[in-house]
Design a protein around this nucleic acid. Structure first.
Lengths: 365, 365
DNA sequence: AAATGTCATTGACACGATTCAATGACCTCG
DNA sequence: CGAGGTCATTGAATCGTGTCAATGACATTT
């Protein structure tokens, strides 16, 4: 799989002795305290002394040891993020937002993927606390937050990321999952749809039950009976794409008067499969049936028809989490906030301007 | 955009005084040294003493201060990664691999996005060196690696990530971009294609020129004249998707005998647009014309027709970079290695089993 | 010129964990 | 009984930086 190519025959480890303030002081001909002042409170030191110190620093390549700094000062300058999987695109965007938020404070971010393992989460929490990070943004593996409460008790700020545990006494930043599906369902009902199919995930997942709640709310708001207006089709797992065709076939096979005129999808990947199955059935989108995705991945806009989808402000989510953390650390006292970000419906071509109620044309014309 | 909801009226900052080994020692009725031994070399200490120390640790919630540990021991237990943008899916996957590689050593990873800014890169390098990270994996912003050489001279290991500077005297891990397009082009030539279009990015980008090189190499291997066999269509920017339709129209408009029978794409997003434009021209894929993407994004397999694409082993890339780093740190002396990862052609439906040479049927039948 | 004040610099101490030579307790063997 | 050995424990020294009270040099005021 990988090609190794050898280049240099051998490189001795030039373990150059680390240079300390003491070395700098000696070279500059001043005392340790003066070097420290020059570095941290330059106004206190005479201009020419400053120059000498600066020269010595440059010449020796001195780099301050932040461990010693931290030991003296009592406080590190880094933060931690514990997420389920940092390679998930959503999560990666949130982490990026978080990184930017704390980078403006000159701090750095330790990224940890728990992989859903409570054990891995615990190990990472331990490591971060040992490092005396100022704060941790975490999507906890399980509901128990006792450990996090103890952590904060001991002085580490904690903010929950996309975890609806309003129970826990923490700041939190999340996306309003219920609102996401409410927006798209409402949009469809407003346009005249009276019966929509909803390909959702298993309802024991928080997001999925929230999504269901939102859709039903939209139906109720439109004066419809949710049980009639929404055909619920639940996958047994969030990634069980293979089950989608069968579910959609069921939709297509429904009697004329009852066939759903739109399909709400768990995510854009599901929407893609839905589009394919509908095409196989010679149903035109959006003319015969509307389709709305979720996530607004990069390719949604490139499809034919371009996919209407729900965008989640994940970068902003992470950024806000970082700001909450900074606020919690800065404020002497503190009011816990729950920031609930609103997803946004991105209208494109895959939903019809007006539902052609339950007309079914097998020739696709 | 965000909804604030206030919950707790006010939370006093319970700044519990940090507990140190001294406190533990006092409570356990032993000396500092014994506590330290109990924690780090438990075999040296008597079982019942061990139990007493353990009890004191638990009762007080002692967590070791890694700054002090590091200060004494001289070495931190963390690594740094400086990439252009950690939210890019490729990069996120590589970072995840890196994280896993060093997590097995009980170390943690500081993630830094340079955003292509030399200034940001410099600030992050400074921070990481102050933290005395054991090593840094970096995709440098520019070609200059002087700063990195100085860094290593001062004792920090450095590995280059997906940066073809074989010039620099560093370990590196990269993906063989030339091979990626060579594989897909060779596949097409093997199947009988004699003239293919290649939608590439601007050639001043390393990856793009490498890709061109690979495609031409494949043509030459097949005994063809690269200038005839490959119709080069270059975007002015790597993200200029808007230019794609015009380029493809040019392909379609070519005289019968000269029309390319396949399109190689810069990435899967481009491939998606290509598929759409071809459909508008009533060209069937793969029957009339083949299409091959690049990146193998999640949705490639879901398209109709499922997209043949080139997968890059990005997770493994990051993982390998981490292992190189660890090796460089561990080995007393060290041979620099350049690991060049091979992309993989994932065959699906969008390329024809055999090219139907230049047949053009405007009715799509 | 003495008194007061300003400014720059100094150096001992603190931070918290680890290490190691030294000490003490206890056992064993001759 | 004493010499020698094993085992557990001790506490002072150390890592590199920041802090602060103290010192000294020099200028200003009366």
């Amino acid at each position: 799989m990988a090609t190794k190519r050898r280049t240099e025959p051998l490189t001795p480890r030039t373990s150059a002795a680390r240079v300390t303030v003491k070395d700098v002081a000696k070279l500059a001909g001043v005392s340790l305290g003066t070097v420290s002042n020059a570095l941290n409170r330059p106004t206190l030191v005479a201009p020419d002394t400053l120059a000498k110190v600066q020269a010595a620093v440059d010449q020796l390549g001195f780099v301050r040891n932040s461990a010693a700094h931290q030991l003296r000062g009592g406080r590190s300058n880094s933060f931690g993020a514990i997420v389920v999987d940092a390679s998930n695109p959503h999560v990666a965007a949130a982490i990026r937002g978080l990184e930017d938020a704390i980078h403006t404070r000159g701090a750095s971010l330790v990224v940890c993927s728990s992989d859903g393992s409570a054990d891995r989460e615990r190990r990472y929490l331990q490591m971060l606390e040992e490092q005396r990070v100022q704060g941790i943004v975490i999507t906890p593996v399980d509901r128990g937050v006792r450990r996090l409460e103890a952590l904060r008790e001991r002085g580490t700020a904690v903010v929950l990321l996309d975890h609806a545990s309003a129970a826990g006494d923490f700041c939190s930043a999340s996306v309003d999952h219920a609102l996401g599906s409410e927006l798209s369902a409402r949009h469809l009902f407003d346009r005249g749809h009276r019966r929509i199919a909803f390909v959702n995930g298993p309802l024991n997942l928080r997001q999925c039950s929230a999504r269901r709640r939102g859709a039903r709310r939209a139906a109720a708001t439109a004066g419809l009976n949710p049980d009639d207006a929404i055909v619920e089709l639940n996958l047994t797992s969030i990634s069980a794409l293979g089950e989608v065709p069968a579910l959609i076939e069921k939709v297509c096979a429904a009697p004329r008067g009852e066939r759903a005129s739109a399909v709400l999808c768990l995510d854009d990947a599901v929407a893609l499969v839905v589009l394919r199955v509908l095409a196989e059935h010679r149903l035109r989108v959006p003319r015969d049936i509307s389709v709305i995705g979720y996530d607004d991945v990069a390719y949604a806009a490139l499809l034919a028809p371009a996919l209407t989808s729900v965008r989640q402000p994940t970068y902003e989510l992470g950024q806000a989490a970082g700001q909450l953390l900074v606020a919690e650390i800065h404020d002497g006292y503190h009011v816990h906030q729950h920031l609930n970000f609103q997803p946004e419906l991105i209208l494109r071509e895959s939903d019809s301007a007006r539902a052609r109620l339950n007309r079914y044309d097998p020739r696709g014309g």
